[in-house]
């Protein structure tokens, strides 16, 4: 029982971090019909921004985190929208998908060639010490990762639902033509979405990299998981992406512990196929209407 609790909690912790990437993925899809196959690399790169901040500019860790967040929003948010999505989207969704795939390779190779091909240690935000939780020895890091990512989701949801800017963003995503005739600055709302996505990816990076170490190839799994979590959850919904992320995190940990760790990487795909067969609209999704 205590082992189960331990496995469950650490699964939820990792899953909640996946969820951050999945939510960003879903937001960008809704606001700009962009299926971002570089989302995993968007989680990989910010860790290197932080390492550059510390190693190259000699920043203390906390400042390097702020630097990494800001630089990610600039590069993976603003520049991504202006230089890739805006010029390519008019040529069609498929073209844009291919462009994001190319971007993924570019980011990976750039990090590999210009920084390092080896996994780099990354300072932990939270202590890894174990803590007694109802008889289970869980790491403080897991608990805090879970709390922090869930708080981020709560703040984001409150922002989207409780502020006028958030609601204008929803309008721009759900019905851009109407948003425009009502005077919503649709372009700016879409830009906000890209900035939020970059911020979510960076925060996911800051939480997950201490566990996985910083490596150029980190994005491969995370990107796939974010994509699958978004689909499992219903592609259009924050809630869905959250549930999808948590589900994958937990199932992944459970199978690795109780069944086999060997086919671990295949699990999200199996889940994806099952969902497509049973509930093509996703767990939380409805077949009609887009929603944030």
């Amino acid at each position: 029982m205590s082992q189960f609790l331990q496995v469950l909690l650490s699964g939820l912790a990792t899953g909640s971090i996946y969820a951050l990437a999945a939510i960003g993925f879903a937001l960008v899809w809704q606001a700009a019909q962009t299926v971002n196959f570089a989302q995993g690399e968007f989680v990989m790169v910010p860790a290197f921004f932080v390492l550059i901040g510390m190693g190259f500019f000699g920043m203390p860790f906390w400042l390097a985190l702020a630097f990494g967040l800001a630089l990610s929003m600039l590069v993976l948010g603003y520049a991504f929208k202006k230089l890739i999505v805006e010029p390519i989207l008019p040529h069609g969704g498929i073209t844009l998908i291919i462009a994001t795939m190319a971007l993924a390779i570019l980011l990976k190779e750039t990090v590999k060639e210009s920084y390092s091909a080896e996994a780099q240690p990354f300072p932990a935000l939270f202590s890894n010490a174990p803590m007694n939780f109802f008889g289970a020895a869980v790491s403080i890091q897991d608990i805090l990762n879970l709390i922090v990512s869930l708080s981020i989701v709560v703040v984001l949801t409150l922002f989207l639902n409780r502020t006028r800017t958030g609601r204008s963003m929803q309008a721009a995503a759900q019905n851009p033509a109407v948003a425009e005739i009502l005077g919503v600055n649709v372009k700016r709302m879409v830009l906000y979405t890209f900035l939020i996505n970059a911020a979510l990816a960076s925060l996911a990076a800051f939480l997950i990299t201490p566990v996985y170490l910083a490596k150029f190839s980190n994005g491969e799994t995370i990107g796939l998981i974010a994509f699958i979590a978004a689909i499992v959850g219903g592609f259009n919904q924050i809630r869905g992406a959250l549930v999808g992320g948590l589900l994958i995190g937990v199932l992944d940990n459970l199978t690795a512990t109780y069944v086999t760790a060997q086919y671990r990487a295949a699990l999200p795909l199996v889940l994806l196929i099952m969902i497509i067969l049973v509930r093509p609209q996703g767990i939380m999704g409805t077949s009609e209407g887009r929603s944030v």
Partner: peptide
Amino acid sequence: TYVPQGRNIVPQLSVYHNLELGGVT
């Protein structure tokens, strides 16, 4: 103000918040 042909609502926002959008500027 312009009320186009067809359906022009923001589906997942509440009625109140749809009205609010009419004054967003």
